[in-house]
Computed example of a mutant assay.
Amino acid sequence: MATPSPPQHPDLYSPGRPFSWPELQALAADGVLTRFHQHGYALPDLQVSAQLRARAAANAVPAQVRQRVVAGRMTAAWIYGCAEEPDKLALLVDATRRISSLRSTRGCTLHEVRLGPFDVVSIGGLMVSSPLRTAVDIALHVEAHRAVPALAGLLARPEQDVRLRLLVLAIEATPRVPHKRAALEKLALLAPALVAGGPVDVEHSVDASDGAEDVAEVLGVTHLEREP
């Protein structure tokens, strides 16, 4: 007689899956579950992964628009485990898609952008900006007190494959994007701690032989947010 396998418990609990919101709160209060997302809970001994955070975020995006948006900026940094969860989801919408129909999406901020072929990855059923694109966007568009810790996290995790020099090159190679100097100043704050042998000279970090335009094309960061 075969030994019955132990019961399998879900790794993600959210309202209606299978417990109601009050039931989830009660289970968390009793220590049965741990809250790791605004509407996401897990068993206390479960190590929360990027896939699990992405699945929880996906549940907060209406199903009818989920395939048309990309989680980016601080939301992506949270999914990668490099930042606290933001109050609202940051969703990127490619400029080639119509954004007017998404304006009513609640609990999120929408950013119309241009996305390159290497800017998006799929994690846990949700499209997420790649680690490098995430770092570029955060450096350019997020205030320093939130951006610098998130950038430090992205740079410190080898599995994300975000390197400081590539990030500097990517930002310097983006044409006509405002806030480039402020972005480089944020990276300069990180350089002494993260680069062996001293800080990066961001003023002269791109040599003529680097081919900045080629670097930008290869990195897939030539298309960034359009500013008014």
Rank of each mutant, 00 (worst) to 15 (best):
E225V: 14
F36S: 12
L166A: 12
A26V: 13
L184T: 04
A76L: 00
R146Y: 08
L155V: 07
S130T: 05
T174Q: 05
V48I: 14
A188P: 01
G31D: 12
E159Q: 15
A28L: 10
D94F: 11
D30H: 05
A212R: 10
V221L: 03
I99Q: 15
A76V: 02
G153F: 03
A29H: 02
A139V: 08
A183Y: 01
L110E: 09
A208W: 04
L92A: 09
L24W: 00
E203W: 01
R55S: 12
G124M: 07
C82S: 13
D214T: 10
M74R: 02
A54K: 05
A28Q: 13
C108M: 09
P117G: 10
A135F: 02
D87N: 06
V128H: 06
L169Y: 02
R146F: 08
V206A: 13
D30S: 14
P10G: 07
D11P: 02
R53W: 05
A212F: 12
P15N: 08
R53I: 04
L166V: 07
L190D: 05
M74E: 03
E185Q: 10
P192H: 14
V206G: 00
P7E: 13
R226T: 15
E84I: 04
Y41F: 15
C108E: 12
L33I: 03
H9T: 13
L190I: 03
R176N: 08
G40H: 08
L190V: 04
L190A: 06
T96E: 15
L92R: 05
D210P: 05
D30L: 15
R35H: 04
A2F: 03
F118V: 13
G72P: 11
T75H: 08
A156K: 01
G153E: 00
L102Y: 10
S100P: 06
V148W: 00
V221E: 03
A139H: 01
P7S: 12
M74H: 04
L194R: 00
E112L: 15
S104I: 09
G107V: 12
A188F: 08
I79M: 09
V93T: 08
R146C: 06
R103Q: 15
L187R: 07
C82D: 05
V136S: 06
V93N: 08
R133C: 06
V65P: 06
R114C: 11
A147Y: 02
E225N: 15
F19A: 00
L43Q: 15
A173P: 04
P158N: 02
V148I: 14
A42P: 11
L219Y: 01
L24Y: 10
W21K: 14
Q38W: 02
L155H: 01
R163E: 13
R68S: 08
L194E: 07
R181I: 00
L91D: 08
L140E: 09
A188Q: 04
A170Y: 01
A42W: 09
L169G: 03
C82V: 02
A56L: 13
V32K: 08
V32D: 13
M74V: 04
E172H: 06
R165C: 06
A196N: 06
A182C: 00
S49M: 04
L189C: 04
V70L: 08
L24T: 05
A144M: 07
W78C: 04
T109K: 15
Y41E: 14
W21E: 15
R226H: 14
P199S: 04
F19L: 10
R146S: 13
V120I: 15
A182M: 01
G116S: 01
G220L: 05
R157G: 11
L110V: 10
P228N: 11
F19C: 09
R97K: 13
V69W: 00
V206N: 02
